[in-house]
Amino acid sequence: MNKMAKGAMATGLGVILLVGGGGTLATWNQAQSASMGSIVAGDLNLAPSATNGTGQWATAAGTKIANIAAYKVVPGEALTYTQNLDLTLVGDQMKATLALTGAGVDNGFGTNVGVVTTVAKGAKTLTGVTLLPADSGAITATTTFTFKVATTGRDAVNATYNFSTVGYKLEQQAPTA
Protein backbone atom coordinates (compact mmCIF):
# COMPACT_ATOMS: atom_id res chain seq x y z
CA MET A 1 0.00 0.00 0.00
CA ASN A 2 1.61 3.17 -1.09
CA LYS A 3 1.71 6.41 0.77
CA MET A 4 -1.06 8.03 -1.18
CA ALA A 5 -3.49 5.21 -0.50
CA LYS A 6 -2.66 5.32 3.21
CA GLY A 7 -3.25 9.07 3.29
CA ALA A 8 -6.61 8.75 1.55
CA MET A 9 -7.75 6.10 3.97
CA ALA A 10 -6.73 8.21 6.95
CA THR A 11 -8.60 11.21 5.60
CA GLY A 12 -11.70 9.16 4.95
CA LEU A 13 -11.60 7.74 8.47
CA GLY A 14 -11.33 11.23 9.90
CA VAL A 15 -14.36 12.42 7.95
CA ILE A 16 -16.38 9.38 9.02
CA LEU A 17 -15.49 10.03 12.65
CA LEU A 18 -16.64 13.63 12.32
CA VAL A 19 -19.95 12.58 10.81
CA GLY A 20 -20.49 9.97 13.42
CA GLY A 21 -19.76 12.28 16.30
CA GLY A 22 -21.85 15.22 15.07
CA GLY A 23 -24.58 14.87 17.64
CA THR A 24 -22.36 14.12 20.49
CA LEU A 25 -21.37 17.81 20.95
CA ALA A 26 -24.93 19.01 21.75
CA THR A 27 -25.81 20.30 25.24
CA TRP A 28 -29.12 21.59 26.66
CA ASN A 29 -30.32 24.78 24.99
CA GLN A 30 -33.56 26.72 24.52
CA ALA A 31 -34.70 29.65 22.38
CA GLN A 32 -37.11 32.31 23.60
CA SER A 33 -38.68 35.21 21.68
CA ALA A 34 -37.76 38.67 22.93
CA SER A 35 -41.31 39.97 22.35
CA MET A 36 -39.92 43.43 21.47
CA GLY A 37 -42.58 44.23 18.93
CA SER A 38 -41.93 46.56 15.96
CA ILE A 39 -40.44 50.01 15.91
CA VAL A 40 -42.30 52.37 13.58
CA ALA A 41 -40.80 55.60 12.30
CA GLY A 42 -42.79 58.79 12.41
CA ASP A 43 -43.29 61.21 9.55
CA LEU A 44 -42.47 64.75 8.64
CA ASN A 45 -43.81 66.31 5.49
CA LEU A 46 -44.79 69.62 3.99
CA ALA A 47 -46.43 69.66 0.61
CA PRO A 48 -48.99 71.63 -1.35
CA SER A 49 -52.46 70.55 -0.42
CA ALA A 50 -53.56 67.50 -2.34
CA THR A 51 -57.01 69.01 -2.85
CA ASN A 52 -56.42 72.75 -3.31
CA GLY A 53 -52.68 73.27 -3.27
CA THR A 54 -52.38 75.62 -6.22
CA GLY A 55 -51.52 79.08 -4.97
CA GLN A 56 -53.71 82.01 -5.92
CA TRP A 57 -53.01 85.72 -6.25
CA ALA A 58 -55.78 88.18 -5.54
CA THR A 59 -56.25 91.93 -5.37
CA ALA A 60 -57.08 93.77 -2.16
CA ALA A 61 -60.72 93.63 -3.21
CA GLY A 62 -60.53 89.85 -3.38
CA THR A 63 -60.61 89.59 -7.16
CA LYS A 64 -58.61 86.56 -8.26
CA ILE A 65 -55.73 87.14 -10.66
CA ALA A 66 -55.72 84.43 -13.27
CA ASN A 67 -52.14 84.99 -14.41
CA ILE A 68 -49.79 87.00 -12.23
CA ALA A 69 -47.25 87.17 -15.08
CA ALA A 70 -49.73 89.25 -17.07
CA TYR A 71 -50.77 91.48 -14.21
CA LYS A 72 -49.27 94.96 -13.87
CA VAL A 73 -49.31 96.43 -10.40
CA VAL A 74 -49.34 100.14 -9.56
CA PRO A 75 -48.51 102.09 -6.38
CA GLY A 76 -51.21 101.78 -3.77
CA GLU A 77 -52.09 98.19 -4.63
CA ALA A 78 -51.70 95.26 -2.26
CA LEU A 79 -51.72 91.82 -3.80
CA THR A 80 -52.08 88.68 -1.74
CA TYR A 81 -50.87 85.20 -2.58
CA THR A 82 -52.53 82.36 -0.73
CA GLN A 83 -51.32 78.77 -0.78
CA ASN A 84 -52.75 75.82 1.08
CA LEU A 85 -50.26 73.27 2.39
CA ASP A 86 -50.51 69.97 4.16
CA LEU A 87 -48.36 69.69 7.27
CA THR A 88 -47.57 66.22 8.59
CA LEU A 89 -45.82 65.66 11.90
CA VAL A 90 -45.91 62.17 13.36
CA GLY A 91 -43.81 60.93 16.23
CA ASP A 92 -44.02 60.78 19.98
CA GLN A 93 -40.93 62.92 20.25
CA MET A 94 -41.57 64.89 17.07
CA LYS A 95 -40.92 68.60 17.20
CA ALA A 96 -40.28 70.85 14.24
CA THR A 97 -40.03 74.43 13.12
CA LEU A 98 -41.30 76.08 10.00
CA ALA A 99 -39.52 78.95 8.32
CA LEU A 100 -39.32 80.82 5.06
CA THR A 101 -36.37 80.11 2.83
CA GLY A 102 -34.80 82.26 0.20
CA ALA A 103 -35.76 85.77 -0.77
CA GLY A 104 -37.54 87.22 -3.72
CA VAL A 105 -35.46 88.63 -6.52
CA ASP A 106 -36.22 92.33 -6.64
CA ASN A 107 -35.51 94.05 -9.91
CA GLY A 108 -36.36 97.71 -9.50
CA PHE A 109 -38.93 97.96 -6.71
CA GLY A 110 -36.46 98.73 -3.96
CA THR A 111 -37.97 100.27 -0.86
CA ASN A 112 -41.21 100.99 -2.67
CA VAL A 113 -42.65 97.60 -1.80
CA GLY A 114 -43.26 95.59 1.33
CA VAL A 115 -43.46 91.80 1.27
CA VAL A 116 -44.79 89.93 4.28
CA THR A 117 -45.43 86.19 4.51
CA THR A 118 -47.27 84.39 7.28
CA VAL A 119 -48.02 80.71 7.71
CA ALA A 120 -50.92 79.84 9.95
CA LYS A 121 -53.33 77.15 10.94
CA GLY A 122 -56.49 78.98 11.71
CA ALA A 123 -55.57 81.80 14.03
CA LYS A 124 -52.28 80.24 15.08
CA THR A 125 -49.12 81.52 13.45
CA LEU A 126 -46.81 78.61 12.72
CA THR A 127 -43.56 80.36 11.87
CA GLY A 128 -41.09 80.97 14.66
CA VAL A 129 -42.67 78.50 17.06
CA THR A 130 -42.13 74.85 17.89
CA LEU A 131 -44.60 72.67 16.04
CA LEU A 132 -45.96 69.41 17.43
CA PRO A 133 -47.92 66.59 15.84
CA ALA A 134 -51.10 68.32 16.97
CA ASP A 135 -50.30 71.09 14.49
CA SER A 136 -50.56 68.67 11.58
CA GLY A 137 -53.21 69.22 8.98
CA ALA A 138 -54.17 71.88 6.49
CA ILE A 139 -52.27 75.13 6.88
CA THR A 140 -52.28 78.33 4.86
CA ALA A 141 -49.36 80.43 3.71
CA THR A 142 -50.17 84.02 2.86
CA THR A 143 -47.85 86.50 1.18
CA THR A 144 -48.84 90.14 0.86
CA PHE A 145 -47.09 92.29 -1.72
CA THR A 146 -47.69 95.98 -1.05
CA PHE A 147 -46.69 98.59 -3.62
CA LYS A 148 -46.41 101.58 -1.34
CA VAL A 149 -48.51 104.68 -1.84
CA ALA A 150 -45.45 106.70 -0.93
CA THR A 151 -43.82 105.81 -4.25
CA THR A 152 -42.87 109.03 -5.99
CA GLY A 153 -42.16 110.22 -9.49
CA ARG A 154 -42.01 107.27 -11.85
CA ASP A 155 -40.08 105.11 -9.42
CA ALA A 156 -40.31 101.36 -10.00
CA VAL A 157 -42.22 101.51 -13.29
CA ASN A 158 -41.89 98.15 -15.04
CA ALA A 159 -40.03 96.71 -12.04
CA THR A 160 -40.31 93.00 -11.31
CA TYR A 161 -40.26 90.89 -8.17
CA ASN A 162 -39.60 87.19 -8.66
CA PHE A 163 -40.76 84.79 -5.97
CA SER A 164 -39.36 81.65 -7.59
CA THR A 165 -36.59 81.30 -5.01
CA VAL A 166 -38.89 81.60 -2.02
CA GLY A 167 -40.13 78.55 -0.18
CA TYR A 168 -41.01 77.08 3.16
CA LYS A 169 -38.81 74.75 5.17
CA LEU A 170 -40.07 72.36 7.79
CA GLU A 171 -37.24 71.14 9.97
CA GLN A 172 -37.27 68.58 12.76
CA GLN A 173 -35.87 69.59 16.11
CA ALA A 174 -33.73 67.12 18.01
CA PRO A 175 -35.73 65.17 20.61
CA THR A 176 -34.89 65.94 24.17
CA ALA A 177 -33.11 63.11 25.97
Binding site: L44, I68, Y71, A96, N158, Y168, E171, Q172, Q173
Partner: peptide, 19 residues
Amino acid sequence: ALWNKQASMAAGTVQAADF
Protein backbone atom coordinates in the same frame (compact mmCIF):
# COMPACT_ATOMS: atom_id res chain seq x y z
CA ALA B 1 -29.27 67.14 10.15
CA LEU B 2 -32.59 65.73 11.14
CA TRP B 3 -35.64 65.29 8.99
CA ASN B 4 -36.53 68.34 6.94
CA LYS B 5 -38.70 69.13 3.97
CA GLN B 6 -38.98 72.16 1.74
CA ALA B 7 -41.88 73.32 -0.35
CA SER B 8 -41.72 75.95 -3.05
CA MET B 9 -43.92 79.01 -2.92
CA ALA B 10 -44.48 79.01 -6.70
CA ALA B 11 -45.86 82.53 -6.61
CA GLY B 12 -44.32 83.58 -9.91
CA THR B 13 -43.27 87.13 -10.67
CA VAL B 14 -45.05 90.37 -9.87
CA GLN B 15 -44.49 93.18 -12.37
CA ALA B 16 -45.11 96.88 -11.98
CA ALA B 17 -47.11 98.72 -14.57
CA ASP B 18 -45.86 101.51 -16.75
CA PHE B 19 -46.87 105.08 -15.99
